[in-house]
Simulated assay, not measured.
Amino acid sequence: MDCEGLVNINEVSGQIFISINQKNKYLLDPLVYLYGGIIKMSPKTEAFEYIIYKKNELFNLIDNFFIKYPLRTKKLNRINLIKEYYLKKINLNNKDVIKLNE
Rank of each mutant, 00 (worst) to 15 (best):
Y33L: 11
P43E: 09
I51M: 06
V97W: 01
I82D: 05
L81G: 07
I18P: 07
G37W: 07
I39V: 13
E84C: 10
N24L: 10
N91M: 10
K88N: 15
N60D: 10
L6T: 06
L58T: 06
I16L: 13
V97D: 03
N101Y: 08
I20N: 12
G14K: 04
P70W: 15
L34Y: 11
I90D: 00
I90K: 06
P30T: 00
K54Y: 04
N60E: 09
N10F: 11
N94S: 15
D96C: 11
E11Y: 01
K68M: 07
I16N: 04
I51V: 15
N80T: 03
N77L: 04
M1K: 01
N101D: 05
E11I: 09
K25P: 00
T45V: 09
N101F: 07
R78G: 02
N24G: 00
Y53W: 07
F59A: 07
L34C: 08
E4T: 14
Y33K: 14
K95Q: 06
Q22A: 07
V32T: 12
Y35E: 02
V97N: 07
E4R: 14
L58G: 08
M1C: 06
P43K: 10
V32G: 06
L87K: 15
I38W: 00
N93A: 09
E84M: 10
E4V: 11
D96Q: 06
Y69A: 09
Q15I: 10
V7K: 01
L61V: 09
I98F: 05
T73F: 06
D2I: 11
Y69S: 13
K99W: 04
Q22D: 15
N93E: 13
N60W: 02
F17E: 09
C3W: 08
I62M: 10
N91C: 11
F59S: 02
N64C: 06
K44S: 05
L28K: 03
K95L: 10
E49H: 02
Y69P: 01
I90R: 08
L100N: 00
P70Y: 14
G14T: 10
K23D: 11
D96Y: 07
K88Y: 13
K83L: 01
K95A: 02
R78S: 12
V12E: 15
I38A: 01
N64K: 08
L34K: 13
T73C: 10
T45G: 01
F17W: 13
L6V: 05
E46R: 06
P70R: 14
N77T: 06
G36M: 04
I18L: 15
I90S: 01
I51A: 03
Y86T: 05
P43H: 02
S19Q: 15
N24C: 10
T73N: 14
L28C: 04
D63T: 11
G5Q: 12
L28S: 08
I82H: 02
N64H: 14
L100I: 01
D2N: 15
E11Q: 04
L81D: 01
Y69C: 11
D2C: 12
N21P: 01
S19E: 14
Y33H: 05
E84S: 14
K83R: 11
L61C: 09
I16D: 05
Q15W: 05
Y50M: 08
P70A: 14
I9M: 07
L87R: 15
